[in-house]
């Protein structure tokens, strides 16, 4: 029994398992368990938190930017569930959340902004607010299209994650990839059960908030070139490209392909920018 526990601990200590297999499984199981309650959109948070737990970074003291990101991911999921349970969100829901979490981005990176000169604070702060607000508004508006919503979460997570690893932060990279894998778990359930599976505000808001803040973290806390953020901002646009109605499995698969194109662009920028390529 002890040997089995040791083996399990060894597996969970593997960074690849922490940021891929574990969140994928947690996302899938959470989505399947909560599907009867129409709360399957919590898959994004469940998978992400499973990775945070395995990495061993749960805690609030000191309240660093990465810990604030985890907190806001949780807050986004709770707000999303409340909106989903309260009734049909309007088209202004995404904009309102965009403004709210855009302002929250300033709180997340306050300690970093304080070190900068006023002009840098203004430019960096405005950029952080704009990116977060845009990604949240554009992704939340996909709440009724589960295939596109799940694919956007997958693209944002994997794009931010892989780009962060290339930009010198493995921790943020693991968090981002975990978000992508968790949304992958949700998409697996969608492939199995079909279009009855609903992403809702719970998944779209969580994925957008975490994706935006992790990408910003890779720029502000590591070495990711800021132009990679512009590529990631195209993820919710790319998933809006036309999708075939049949066969049913084709829709989520093709949406993921669309989402991964700008995500791959962000990774290419992360790879090429340090080599002197001008962006």
């Amino acid at each position: 029994m002890l040997e089995l526990l040791d083996t399990l601990k060894g597996i969970l200590a593997n960074p690849i398992v922490q940021s891929s297999a574990l969140p994928l499984l947690a996302g899938l199981v959470c989505a399947a368990l909560l599907y009867p309650l129409r709360l399957e959109g919590l898959a994004a948070l469940a998978g992400f938190l499973a990775a945070v737990f395995a990495i061993g970074n749960f805690g609030l003291e000191p309240l660093t930017a990465t810990r604030k990101i985890v907190l806001l991911g949780g807050a986004a999921a709770v707000l999303g569930v409340l909106v989903d349970l309260a009734g049909r969100p309007t088209r202004y829901t995404g904009m309102a959340f965009g403004a709210l979490f855009g302002a929250a981005a300033l709180w997340v990176f306050a300690a970093v902004l304080r070190q900068k000169i006023p002009l840098d604070v203004a430019v960096t702060g405005a950029g952080a607010v704009a990116l977060t607000a845009w990604l949240v508004a554009a992704t939340v508006s996909l709440q009724y299209d589960s295939a596109r919503a799940g694919a956007a979460g997958l693209g944002l997570g994997l794009g931010a994650g892989v780009a962060a690893v290339l930009g010198a932060s493995a921790l943020i990279g693991q968090y981002g990839m975990a978000l992508g894998a968790a949304c992958g778990g949700f998409l697996l359930l969608l492939l199995i059960l079909g279009p009855r599976v609903s992403a809702g505000t719970a998944l779209t808001l969580t994925a957008a908030v975490l994706g935006a803040l992790l990408a910003l973290g890779a720029v502000l806390l590591a070495q990711l070139h800021w132009t990679a953020l512009a590529a990631l901002a195209l993820v919710p646009v790319a998933v809006r490209l036309p999708l075939p109605a049949t066969p049913l499995w084709m829709k989520p698969v093709l949406a993921c392909v669309y989402a991964l194109i700008p995500a791959a662009g962000a990774c290419a920028i992360a790879w090429l920018a340090p080599r002197g390529w001008a962006f």
Partner: peptide
């Protein structure tokens, strides 16, 4: 894509 010093400076 990065040096060890850059990694040490990251989060």
């Amino acid at each position: 894509p990065r040096t060890l010093d850059e990694h040490l400076k990251s989060a």
